[in-house]
Amino acid sequence: MAETLLRVEGLRTYFYTWAGVVKAVDGVSLHVDKGETLGIVGESGSGKTVTALSIMRIVPAPGKIIEGKIEFQRKNLLAESEEEMRKLRGREIGYIFQDPTSTLDPVYTVGEQLSEVLVRHQNLDKKSAMDRAVELLRIVEIPDPEIRINQYPHQLSGGTKQRIAIARAICCSPSLLLADEPTTALDVTIQAQILETLKGLKDRFNMSMVLITHDMGIVAETCDRVVILYAGQVYETGTTEQVFENPKHPYTEALLTSVPHLALKRERLSVIQGNIPNLIEPPSGCRFHPRCKYAQQICIDKVPELEPMEEGHLAACHFARELKLKSPVTS
C-alpha cells in the first residue's frame, strides 16, 4: 500500500457573487499517494481549478472555503495559519497554471522571477539564486538558458514560457505538483513535449502530481489514477485502467466516447447533449441527470452516493452496477 501524500475530504468552496452563491466545489474527496499522478477530469466549470486552488488556499475573492479537511504532511491545511501556508506554497507544493502568458509578470525578466522564489524559500543571495535559475532552465530543457534568463516573457514562445512556469513550480523540489491544464493553451506538438518533460521531472524529483485536464487522451497517457468531476462533485474515481476499460458512470462514458480516436473503429462522434449545469442552482438529485441518456425518476429525486464497484474503483450512480457502459478501449 502506497503512502498517502494528500487527502482531501468533503471540500466545499463557494463563491459569493452578486448573481448568487456559486457552489464551485460542493463535497469533493480525493487522495494522492506518494509517487503517483492523479488526474482530475471534467469540463470547464466542473470545479477542477477551484479544487486545486483550495488545496493551496489561494482561492481569490469572492470565493471562500466553507468546510472540509485537507491533510498534507500530517497537517490540516485548512487549519494552518497564512504564514505557515506561505512556507508551503512554492516550496512543498508547486502550482503550474494554465496560461503561461498571463501568469508571468510582464515587467520582470524570467531570471528575476525565478530567483525571487529561490531567495524567498531557500535564503540564497541574488547571485546564487540566478545561477540556480539558469540550472533550472536547463533542467526543464530550455536551450541557451544563459540568454533566456535575461529575457522578458513577451519575448518568449508559449512553450518556453510554460517551461519557465514549470521551473518556477519545481524550483524548490516540492513533494506535490499541481498542474492545472498545463498544455491546454499550447500547440498540439508542444503539448507532447511538455508532458514528457513533466514526466521526467516527476521521476527525477520524486514528486507526486495532480494533473487537471479535460482531455481524456492526456489522462490515458500520464495518469495512474483519475477522478471524474462534474458540477463540483466527484462522480467516479479509480485507476486509469479501471475507469477507461470499465467506466461505471454515464458521464465517464460520455467523456470517453467523445474523444476522436483514429485507431478505433467508430460510426460517429458522440456529443454530450445539454449544457454545463448552473452552479448557483444545481439540478436536484444526480446533477448529471438533465444530460444523461439513462436518467430515470430516481436520478432526479435522490442524490447518488459514491459506492465501490471494485477495489479502488468508486462511482456515484444509481444504476452503476446495472449499466453496461461502452468504452472505446474495449469495444
Binding site: M56, I58, P60, R86, K87, L88, R89, G90, R91, Y95, F97, D99, S102, T103, L104, D105, P106, E116, V117, R120, H121, A165, R168, A169
Partner: peptide
C-alpha cells in the same frame, strides 16, 4: 486581479513583495 499576482501568491511570496 491579474493571473500573475495569483501565480506569485502560489509561489509563496509575501504580501509586501
Amino acid at each position: 486581479r491579474q493571473d500573475y499576482i495569483l501565480a506569485a501568491r502560489a509561489s509563496g511570496l509575501g504580501d509586501r513583495a
